[in-house]
Simulated assay, not measured.
Amino acid sequence: MSTNSTIKIAIVDDHPMVLEGLKSILSKEAYDVYAFTKGTALLDFIQSNSVHLILLDIVLNDSNGIDLCKKLRDRLANTIIVGISNQAEKSIILEFIQAGGNGYILKNSDNSEIITCIQQALLGNLALSQEAQRIILQAPVNNLALPKITKREKQILQAVAKGHTSAQIADQLFISLITVETHRRNLMQKFKVKNMIELIRIATENRLFD
Rank of each mutant, 00 (worst) to 15 (best):
N206K: 00
Q189A: 15
K194L: 06
Y34F: 15
I7R: 11
S129C: 10
L42R: 06
I84H: 02
K90Y: 10
I202S: 05
K194V: 07
S109F: 07
K38V: 01
S2W: 08
K190M: 10
V193E: 07
L123I: 00
Q120F: 05
S129Y: 05
K194H: 05
V82E: 09
A167H: 01
G103N: 07
V180T: 08
G103F: 00
T182N: 14
E29G: 09
K194I: 08
E131S: 14
K151S: 14
L123Y: 04
I118Y: 09
S48A: 09
G100F: 07
I25Y: 06
Q172I: 04
C69V: 10
V12D: 01
Q138M: 14
E205C: 10
T179R: 06
D44W: 06
A139S: 15
V180H: 03
L157F: 00
I202V: 14
N142L: 11
L19H: 01
K162T: 06
I178E: 13
D74R: 12
T40V: 14
H183G: 07
L123H: 11
S27L: 07
S27A: 14
T182R: 15
G101T: 06
A132R: 00
L56F: 07
V18F: 01
I81F: 01
S2L: 14
I175E: 07
A121M: 08
M196D: 10
I25E: 04
R152D: 10
N111D: 02
V59P: 00
R134C: 01
E153T: 01
G39A: 02
D13Y: 04
T179D: 06
V180N: 09
I156R: 11
G65W: 06
S24K: 14
S109I: 06
N102P: 00
S112Y: 13
R134V: 08
D210N: 15
H52F: 05
L94C: 02
D62S: 08
Q47I: 08
L173E: 13
Q87I: 12
D57M: 11
Q155L: 00
I175P: 00
N143A: 10
A77W: 10
L173D: 03
I118R: 07
K8S: 11
K194G: 08
S112I: 13
R134H: 10
L122V: 07
V160G: 09
S91E: 15
C117N: 05
I46N: 07
S129K: 09
S24I: 03
E89P: 05
N195L: 00
I136V: 13
A127R: 02
D62A: 04
L122Q: 07
K148T: 14
Q98W: 01
L137S: 12
L173Q: 14
G65Q: 05
A30P: 03
N125W: 09
R152A: 13
L144P: 11
R75I: 12
